[in-house]
Design a protein around this nucleic acid. Structure first.
Length: 616
DNA sequence: TTAGGGTTAG
């Protein structure tokens, strides 16, 4: 391996008789007659070499000492050679370290460990794991410095298979309960999405620090279990650990995913109490949290008061306007961003296109899409998906279909899903079938796609086809995602599923729903049975609709809160069309404002209409 | 000789 070290070494050895180390660099003092001096005084030369190595200021300095070590025959002195290896690794001169490693005829586990760390430092995780596997093969001793490094390498490569093998090695060497090893394992499992493995280890740890708590809080939020993040955050505080800014960002993010305004307000008060300064990240996380919990004004207030903002802060605020149906505001903000000479990124455009889509601003969306290259952003599948959604919802199915045919980017299931959704809205069975075939090929295990297609057939009265889909789902062992609705009342969250009778106030809820429905029908509400996917009598269909979880939550909200009080409701799926109409009438008849967050966006029902303009 | 955790869309 003739690398630059060799070059430096040869050049140096040519001059070695002429130049003394001390004159080469002011920072170290080992001279070429150092060996003679030290042997005559019978003091170990290791300490002097090591202090010389540690005082190196650059790789050239290290190379010179390296040459000196070779010339004076000290390369087999492990403490010296290992220190040289270590300093090369510190300076990320991994090729030089490798050369030295090959030159060493005597190596110990430290030499190997340093190489593992060196490769990890330069981001070469492949070689990092390769060297580690040799350590295991040679049965060299393992320590709590090397294991966390290789565990982190697995995290970076998202390789949980190798990660598990290393966990096994740690177990066998009795290192699995070491604090550093265990913390690294928790992090690795968490980042690889193996939340239950992470949790099991985390619970078994003899002690936990703030970083490990933060990893777990973030991991729960990232795997769709933000409620558990909240529980963990409370547990952490009960153990007397005070969160820092990073931990706060993690819980704010979890709270945004939870969508619960009560929690959001409580958390924000707590942050004020801690007096944590808002950096860009925390400020942005707070914008996102307030917006996703339905308080757009609070989000904008934070945005306006932030001393420093980055492209993510702007994109978050633009996105917030988008899913609240305020596309004009989103576009205004985008213009402000451009005026301040800030460069948008690919996500800014996804947010903008989405905003247009939610508001039906087709022409504006097309213009933005066409302008992307001007900002150096090449449209990816996400941007195309927004466009399919935008054109499809607006009924321009032919244009959407043409765009799908001509696009050069690889199509994914979300793109086909958007197209299928548009076909459903505009009742185009033929195009829907085409989309469904592609979709079911890409994602045969997602029950949502089958339901959507079955919905389209049901709408068209094709009950035989509906039955076929149902059979196919049964054959493949797929079940519909259960729909749930949550509502806050008395500082508690109440959860309902379709036809739920488990709530303690169930009788009153059904009574309230019955009275409400009667009032709404007098006001003109007619149940839309197109949203029932079963081939049953109209009367039965009406009965099925009346039990939807969002209606139960609304009925409960009305009897549990004072008159005129705003209701906040969250649904895990998209709100059904019939419920949407029901809520509009309810907002008029009961004179209540109802904010519903569904899987797609916010709907603010007020005085008989919805902020989405029936466009969702 | 110990490191590591956090923000935007879909």
């Amino acid at each position: 391996m003739l690398n630059n070290l060799r070059g430096r070494f040869l050049q140096f050895t040519r001059n070695i008789t002429k130049v003394r180390f001390a004159t080469c660099s002011a920072s170290y003092t080992v001279s070429d007659d150092f060996h003679e001096q030290s042997s005559s005084s019978s003091v170990s030369p290791a300490r002097d070499y090591i202090s010389a190595i540690l005082s190196c200021k650059n790789v050239l300095d290290i190379g010179k000492i390296h040459a000196q070590v070779i010339i004076n025959g000290f390369l087999q002195e492990l403490t010296i050679a290992n220190k040289l290896l270590y300093i090369y690794a510190q300076y990320r001169a991994i090729a030089d370290a490798e050369t030295l490693f090959e030159e060493m005829s005597v190596k110990d586990s430290m030499s190997w460990s340093v190489m593992v760390g060196g490769f990890a430092k330069t981001g070469d995780f492949f070689n990092c794991l390769r060297v580690f596997s040799q350590i295991v093969r040679l049965s060299l001793s393992l320590d709590n410095y090397t294991l966390p490094i290789v565990i982190r390498a697995c995290r970076e490569k998202k390789d949980v298979v190798v990660g598990r093998l290393i966990h096994e090695v740690a177990l066998r060497s009795g290192m699995d309960m070491d604090f550093y090893v265990c913390a690294a394992l928790v992090d690795m499992y968490a980042k690889c999405g193996m939340i239950d493995d992470a949790c099991k280890l985390f619970d078994g740890m003899p002690k936990r620090d703030l970083v490990t708590w933060t990893v777990m809080i973030g991991a729960y939020a990232g795997s769709g279990r933000p409620d558990e993040s909240w529980v963990l955050f409370e547990r952490m505080r009960n153990e007397g650990i005070v969160p820092d800014r990073v931990a706060i960002v993690a819980i704010v993010n979890a709270c945004a995913k939870l969508g619960d305004l009560h929690n959001a307000v409580m958390l924000h008060d707590y942050i004020r109490l801690l007096n944590v300064p808002f950096g860009v990240m925390l400020g942005t996380a707070l914008i996102d949290m307030h917006a996703k919990c339905g308080n757009l004004d609070a989000a904008r207030e934070i945005f306006d008061t932030m001393k420093e903002r980055n492209v993510i802060s702007w994109s978050s605020m633009i996105a917030a306007y988008g899913y609240h149906g305020k596309a004009t505001k989103a576009l205004e903000l985008f213009q402000m961003m451009l005026d301040r000479r800030l460069s948008p990124n690919d996500i800014t455009f996804v947010s903008l296109l989405n905003a247009c889509s939610h508001a039906g601003l087709v022409e504006e969306g097309l213009k933005i899409f066409d302008s992307m290259l001007m900002y150096g952003i090449r449209p990816n599948v996400k941007h195309y998906t927004c466009m399919i959604d935008l054109l499809g919802r607006a009924g321009r199915l032919d244009e959407a279909s043409k765009m799908i045919e001509t696009m050069s980017v690889e199509k994914d299931e979300t793109l086909w899903g958007s197209f299928l959704g548009a076909c459903r809205i505009h009742k185009n069975v033929e195009m829907a079938e085409k989309a469904a075939i592609s979709l079911l090929e890409l994602q045969p295990q997602n029950p949502g796609h089958y339901i959507l297609l079955s919905n389209i057939y049901a709408n068209d009265g094709k009950w035989e086809e509906v039955a076929k889909i149902r059979n196919l789902m049964n054959q493949r062992g797929l079940k519909k995602f259960p729909g749930y609705t949550w509502i806050e009342a008395d500082n508690t969250t109440h959860k309902f599923k379709v036809g739920d009778r488990t709530h303690p106030k169930s009788t009153e809820i059904y009574e309230s729903l019955k009275n409400l429905t009667e009032k709404l029908e007098k006001a003109g509400y007619v149940p839309d049975t197109n949203f029932v996917l079963h081939d049953v009598d109209e009367e039965v269909k009406v009965g099925m609709l009346s039990l939807h979880s969002e209606k139960l939550a609304l009925a409960f909200g009305l009897i549990s809160t004072p008159e005129g009080c705003l209701l906040r409701i969250t649904k895990n799926l998209r709100v059904c069309g019939d419920c949407h109409s029901f809520f509009k009438f309810a907002s008029l008849v009961t004179r209540r404002e109802v904010i519903v967050r569904d899987a797609n966006r916010f709907h603010c029902f007020k005085e008989g209409s919805c902020s989405c303009g029936d466009y969702w």
